[in-house]
């Protein structure tokens, strides 16, 4: 995943997309990513769950993932097979949940330039978002060192496993 040369379709959403809109509460009786993914953005954009393909991207405006702490929200996106979320800014709990789950989340002030249906890809090493439809590239903020370490350890679960086993 996340080959900068391999673009996916951008599904663009607006500002203040809350977790109820990402995964409506009536679907929270499941914790299975694939099942949750079948209902992602169900009410807000009913064509999303059936139309989204592996390797696509979700693009948000400001304050993406606000509202409840439900990890089901980023998990449902993992279940859809999207390769990451790009937004102008994220709500705090969504952002940390996504990092803990290993779903790439990029804070990109210029995300507003991406149009629905544009073909984009992420270059995580360079910290850029490439828009293949317009031949533009946008800078994304790099992760703070502590979080990068966590990501490099393979996420919070493997970090914790190593801690429990005394390796860390």
């Amino acid at each position: 995943m996340n080959d900068p040369a391999q673009p996916g379709t951008a599904w663009v959403f607006g500002d203040d997309i809350d977790t109820d809109q990402i995964i409506p509460s009536r679907f929270l009786v499941s914790s299975d990513p694939a099942e949750l993914g079948e209902h992602a953005f169900n009410d807000l954009r009913p064509e999303f769950p059936s139309g989204v393909e592996d390797g696509d991207f979700v693009v948000g405006g400001h304050n993406f993932g606000s509202g409840s702490s439900r990890e089901h929200a980023p998990l449902s996106l993992v279940g859809t097979g999207v390769d990451g979320v790009v937004a102008q800014s994220f709500a705090r709990i969504f952002f940390r949940n996504a990092i803990n789950l290993g779903l790439p989340v990029l804070i990109c002030p210029e995300a507003g330039q991406i149009a629905d249906g544009d073909e984009i890809s992420l270059d995580l090493d360079a910290g850029t978002v490439i828009n293949h439809s317009t031949n533009e590239s946008y800078d994304a903020e790099s992760l703070p060192e502590f979080l990068q370490t966590l990501v490099d350890e393979g996420g919070l679960k493997s970090y914790t496993k190593r801690k429990i086993s005394g390796e860390l």
């Binding site: 949940n97 679960k157 801690k163």
Partner: peptide, 20 residues
């Protein structure tokens, strides 16, 4: 403070968690 299930599930085991 509110956290996700990965945060909480790991803290169940260690009673520690990272914070900014």
């Amino acid at each position: 403070t509110g956290v996700g299930s990965t945060d909480l599930g790991t803290a169940f085991a260690t009673s520690e968690l990272w914070f900014r």
